[in-house]
């Protein structure tokens, strides 16, 4: 994968993490009437995104 492709994959993954788990947290919050799960979901989502990014393209490859 070239540099451009990596950049796009990173952006796409970060967005997906925030949308998916932030959105899930928001849904939980509006269902349960709490305000806890949205920030938790956002943080979990970004953490997972970064984990996948490192898994996919971390390390030194030639």
């Amino acid at each position: 994968m070239n540099d451009q492709g990596q950049g796009i994959t990173v952006v796409s993954l970060l967005l997906a993490g925030l949308l998916l788990y932030g959105g899930a947290g928001w849904l939980l919050d509006s269902w349960l009437g709490t305000r806890l799960f949205t920030p938790f979901g956002l943080i979990l989502g970004s953490a997972l995104s970064i984990y996948v990014i490192v898994k996919k393209m971390g390390g030194v490859k030639s």
């Binding site: 993954l13 967005l15 997906a16 993490g17 949308l19 998916l20 989502g45 995104s49 984990y51 996948v52």
Partner: peptide
């Protein structure tokens, strides 16, 4: 946790 994330991405 990872499969939905990659799917959405």
């Amino acid at each position: 946790l990872i499969i939905p994330l990659e799917f959405i991405s």
